[in-house]
Amino acid sequence: MELRQLRYFLKAKELLNFTEAAHALNISQSTLSQQIKQLEDQIRVPLFNRIGKRISLTEAGTLFAEYALQSVNRADDGLLLLEDLNNLKTGKINIGVTFALRNVLTKTLILFAQQYPKVKVCIVFGTSDELIEKLSAAELDLVLTFKEDSKDTQFRQELLFSSPLTLVAAERTGLASRRSISLEEITRLPLALPATGYSTTRFITEAFKRKGLHPDVSIEINDIPTLLAIVKTGSWHTILTKVSVVDQDLITIPIEGKKMSRSAMAIWLNDAYPKKAMLAFLKLLKAENNL
């Protein structure tokens, strides 16, 4: 049973004349008659009484008309919904973000919500591992995270920008005049780091290991705002990407060495249909951050 057959049937029911119905549908009468006959053959019951050139609905045709109309109306509603979806007048996007990109996200989120108020946006914060796991399970449409470029064909990845790794300290610690700092010097400082699971923590731990260094990490915490509050006391330091820190009471000092920067990536499932709202959000993100 095809939708067009239902439309043909309903027009013939309305006009009770195949010739007029065919003209209204802009098709030939033979096409209309053939399609209605195919519909009747499929449901195994006549829908019209054919008396000479006149037609009238059978009892089955009268009963069937109500359901045919519902089907056509539902299909039309669905097309309107898809049109609204395509024009960003409805829909929902689920975006996973690491805390390090919170500042980059916020401005874009506000602008997107203002431009497309009918599109619902759900933001989930987490570690890179947590977010990638949710993306793999199709619980997220897009992930924004610091992650090394992967050859995993399951994902499509787009580089957004790079941000240097920095030592984060309270302004009053006396390090404000430093232009850079080495890993060796950092080992002599008390550190509070993001907990295991944060990609930046894994990255910096590997950097220390390559040099055979053992940093003095006295606190590990999985809540970055609390971590920064601890650093503000001046008793501890931490290591984060520069873009993660905008607090005026904190300073960021670039860490010396090759490849001491992180790549911010936009990641989505390669085989999944990219939602238009997701692509619009990503485009706005890049435009607002000059990427």
Results as ranks from 00 to 15, higher is better:
Phe155His: 02
Ser199Asn: 13
Lys242Gly: 14
Tyr198Val: 00
Glu171Tyr: 14
Thr233Ser: 08
Thr166Cys: 04
Thr241Lys: 04
His237Val: 00
Gly174Phe: 07
Gly257Thr: 10
Arg262Gly: 12
Asp223Ser: 11
Lys242Trp: 00
Arg172Asn: 15
His237Phe: 02
Val246Gly: 06
Ser235Trp: 12
Thr173Pro: 08
Thr238Glu: 02
Leu183Val: 02
Leu193Asp: 13
Leu228Ile: 09
Ser218Phe: 08
Ile186Arg: 03
Pro164Leu: 00
Ala169Thr: 11
Ser244Thr: 01
Asp216Tyr: 02
Ala195Asn: 12
His237Tyr: 01
Arg262Thr: 11
Gly257Cys: 13
Ile204Cys: 01
Asp249Gln: 06
Leu228Val: 05
Thr166His: 03
Ser162Gly: 08
Leu227Ile: 07
Val246Met: 04
Lys258Ala: 15
Ile181Cys: 08
Phe161Cys: 05
Lys209Cys: 05
Gln157Thr: 09
Ile224Tyr: 02
Ser235His: 12
Thr166Glu: 04
Thr226Met: 10
Gly212Ala: 02
Lys258Ser: 14
Arg262His: 14
Lys211Gly: 02
Arg262Lys: 12
Tyr198Ala: 14
Ile204Pro: 02
Thr166Leu: 03
Ile224Met: 00
Ile181Thr: 10
Pro190Met: 08
Thr226Phe: 10
Pro190Phe: 11
Glu185His: 09
Lys258Trp: 09
Gly174His: 06
Thr233Trp: 05
Lys259Tyr: 13
Gly174Ile: 00
Arg172Ala: 10
Gly197Val: 02
Leu160Thr: 04
Thr226Tyr: 14
His237Asn: 04
Thr196Phe: 12
Ala264Met: 09
Leu250Tyr: 02
Thr233Met: 10
Glu256Tyr: 07
Glu220Gln: 08
Met260Gln: 09
Leu193Ser: 15
Ser261Trp: 11
Thr226Ala: 09
Asn222Val: 02
Ser218Leu: 04
Thr238Asn: 05
Met260Tyr: 14
Leu250Ser: 00
Glu184Val: 06
Leu183Pro: 05
Val243Lys: 00
Val243Gln: 08
Lys209Asn: 11
Gly212Met: 10
Ala207Val: 15
Ser177Ala: 15
